[in-house]
Design a protein around this nucleic acid. Sequence first.
DNA 1: CTAGGGTTAG
Length: 696
Amino acid sequence: MCCCKVANFRYETPCPLDQVWVFPPSRSQKLPGLQDGGLGRTLHGLMLKMGLDLDQFSANALVDTYSKAREIEGAVAVFQEIAHPDVVSWNAVIAGCVLHDRNDLALMMLDEMNSSGTSPNMFTLSSALKACAAMRFKELGKQLHSCLIKRVADSDLYASVGLIDMYSKCEMMDDARRAYDSMPKKDVIAWNALISGYSQCGDDFEAVSLFSKMYNEDIDFNQTTISTVLKSVASLLAIKVCKQIHSISIKSGIYSDFYVINSLLDTYGKCNHIDEASKIFEERTWEDLVAYTSMITAYSQYGDGEEALKLYLQMQDADIKPDAFICSSLLNACAKLSAYEQGKQLHVHAIKFGFMCDIFASNSLVNMYAKCGSIDDADRAFFEIPNRGIVSWSAMIGGYAQHGHGKQALQLFNQMLRVGVPPNHITLVSVLCACNHAGLVNEGRQYFEKMEEMFGIKPTQEHYACMIDLLGRSGKLNEAVELVNSIPFEANGSVWGALLGAARIHKNIELGQKAAEMLYDLEPDKSGTHVLLANIYASAGMWENVAKVRKVMKDSKVKKEPGMSWIEIKDKVYTFIVGDRSHSRSDEIYAKLDQLGDLLSKAGYSPVVEIDIHNVNRSEKEKLLYHHSEKLAVAFGLIAMPPGAPIRVKKNIRICVDCHTFLKFVCKIVSREIIVRDINRFHHFKDGSCSCGDYW
DNA sequence: CTAGGGTTAG
């Protein structure tokens, strides 16, 4: 008895698998058969011992056995023993080279074969085409094509597929298509090769259309067709097609193939249907790296870093060895979460598993430490990279910039130029950002004005936004406006947002209104615009306008993004919102805040109420301020972290003036370093002051 | 005795 799942129902029946499966199991599920190198070697040794001479037939078979067992040295050795290799001997050894990924050797053997006077046949040509495809040898591929036409009258399925594949891999889809069209009869493998070609060349639409044609015309497809076409479906983010293919593969009985299931999982993940992806992931019956990679990447990219990290642990419990790719994916997740402790552990794993020679993993490590607030660790990780690329340099310069270490960022930038690494547009955003956070107006202006001339990089939206922010903060509002007017393209939300921020700092109502108007058009769903404009009106005492903005906001159903803070303690990340009482140690947290409040008042602190659009009276407002999420997170850090350890908190919006002042007092009173990462940058509170110099 | 198409990927 066996239990088989076919289409949408389950039934129990004494059925052999082949009655149920429309398609045979894929190659990956077949047993290796007689491709046993050990057995081949034993037989070979036995024959030598017994003084048996190999006849041509046996020798060819032996070459083939070694080849299939991926023991290319053995195959070549036996081949060389053959006094007069025939076409089959050559074919077997050339195929072996290709199978062993020694395509260069395969093509050399082909050359030798030609010189020795043996003519290649279909078998030879199909192996040779595969080698050409792998090496992306266009010209040789074309020569093989003409050789094929000259020598062979009938077309051959294998050789034709070889041609389609070769032209596809050489990005010559028109020729691939011609090779396909000239086939008198096309089998499923030819279809698959063509679909795969379009997919590899980025013509995803054509790939999906071909599959749809196959399906509508009732042409047989198989597991390979499905996994190939899904790759294109994923690139197109075509969720409907993905769902259709999902049901097609269940109905046709091929939803049992590793490739099909992994492809579906990956496609759902890429289309941001995490729930469906995770369902497939949970229901799968085997463990493998690809499924974990797809799932972890999906979680990391859609912000659920905690789930990504959980899976990483689960993966190790399942005895799957992670690779450098997963490692860098997870480090990026830690960077997003500001999960410093988890990040450090991953660093240890990366060393243990030998991933530190991978440039992506080491770049991610620099980024992770910088984003987790430890610029010193980032620095160390950066200097340990032997072959720094542009991404490594940009990550480190960007890290310094976010921490407000403008001078170091610029020094590193100069060092990068000295060692001859040309900057890209991202590096220059970081450079301007460094000037911005360190208040280096003149330097910023110079880099901005000369970036095109010196580095051939035209300023984009981001560069303008950074520069306008810099000018605006330092009070050069007229210059900022002039710059906005000089932009040779339509400015986007980040540019106008920078101008609005500048208008708020310098209480410029007219400019604020203009920028806000632009932003309402460009980013109608963003709450920040309303809040900032209302703040500008409020600071000028224009209460009627404040009320108007509040009404607009209410009517348009735009909600203010709720402030949240995160703190990581041991292996857990704790989340806080304003007035949060959901934590098991809530009482202790509030007691700690009360205790701090007393100490702080004695030291001269009084709450700083930033007027905003909320209809709350002053004492309530103070209470709310007092329980802002970052204060709760810091208080929790103080009771739960070991004495003296720095406290790292991440926040999703800009830190308010009161919390900023509060933390300057706290760090002094408790003699602890407090590091807060807000939406824009890092604040290092130490000895009563902040690294941002109250300029943020 | 010898040959063709597939999943993760910064």
